[in-house]
Simulated assay, not measured.
Amino acid sequence: MHDLNQRAQELHRRLENIKKYFNIENKKKDLSGLEAKSMDPNLWDDQENARRLMQNLDFLKKEIEDYKSMDEEVAALLSLSQENDLSKEFAKDIETLGKRIDKFELKSFLTEAYDAKNAIVSIHAGQGGTEAMDWASMLFRMYLRFCERRNWKTETLDISEGDEAGIKSVTFKVEGAYAYGYLKGEAGTHRLVRQSPFNADKLRQTSFALVEVLPELEETDLPDIQIKDEDLEWQFFRASSQGGQNVQKVSTAVRVIHLPTQVTVTAQTERFQEQNRKIALNLLRSKLWLLEQAREEAQKKDLKGEYRPASWGNQIRSYVLHPYKMVKDLRTEVETADPDAVLDGELDQFIDAEIQNP
């Protein structure tokens, strides 16, 4: 009984700390503003903007409801605790509420400008041919399963299939509250050690894949980044990925090169060229933002010379399937002996630790 009372008091203390950064009144004002905009009869003239507004409205509404629900439950438990009426039957309720507060507390670490945005994730197979391409495919499935567990929507924007198996590269969008904030720590090189399924001798093989994570940014998010028409070189081609007849027979796929920086992006999964052009421009905008961030970071560190995204040298996690089983994060030291669960999308312990990593 005394232990349950202490746990109820601790939940109350933690929720009070959450109140300091959550600011319920400001959230309610933001919600009212979005609800007013959603009533605009001309809202759906721009379907992409309307869809994004409704998504933000749903995210904010759910966040406020979750907070209010936790506040009410903690208040009820605290009242029972003060009356010494907190019986063992409430132990499970306290444990469940504690886990909900755990997840909410993580948001206090997601305070960067674009942490609440959708994410754009790219996976690139490293050197090693079919082995590396199969590893890239395994990572793609891992992230799709992680997003599925969180009820986040995913959309493949560009994919290049491997010659024999796996994928050479893939870019996909993740739509969900704080998707970028949660996933940005996954950027870097992921290393796999296993017995080769493509070698008759089943030799031990090491493969690498690079993961890039960007926020989905709009023109209004980055007023200082100007993309001029004369700085763009557009190329159009037939999509190589599976799709409808229109995708396969018409040059719907697009590639755009930003001439001043030589940053190149591709989009080919939508049925119409104009849709792929919009996707490519958003991808380009995000990559130019990342380039600018890296330059600013280099200036802070007084680094000289041209910026190069040397992410391949940034190995963040090792996945060992043979001769023993282990997944270990090289930054936080978090590890598990169950790589099958991790590769099936159970990434929370790694992502949560990295978010809280100073």
Rank of each mutant, 00 (worst) to 15 (best):
G244Y: 08
L139H: 07
A136V: 01
P215W: 02
Q226V: 03
S137Y: 10
S240G: 15
E216S: 12
D201H: 07
A177K: 07
S196V: 00
G166L: 04
I167F: 11
I167L: 09
L144H: 13
D229I: 02
V211A: 06
Y178K: 08
T189F: 07
K228C: 08
A187V: 11
Q226G: 04
W152K: 03
G243R: 05
T189Y: 08
L157C: 14
E148M: 10
N151H: 14
L210P: 04
Y143F: 13
L214D: 10
K173Q: 14
Y143S: 01
V174H: 06
E219T: 02
W152C: 03
V213N: 00
R149M: 04
R191N: 09
E155T: 14
S137M: 13
L157T: 12
W234T: 11
S169E: 15
L222K: 00
E148Y: 10
V213R: 00
D231Q: 05
P197L: 13
A177N: 14
E212I: 02
R204P: 02
T154P: 03
M138S: 12
E218A: 11
A165V: 15
L232P: 00
F237C: 03
S241M: 06
K173T: 06
D163F: 06
F208N: 03
V174T: 10
E212W: 07
T220H: 13
H190T: 10
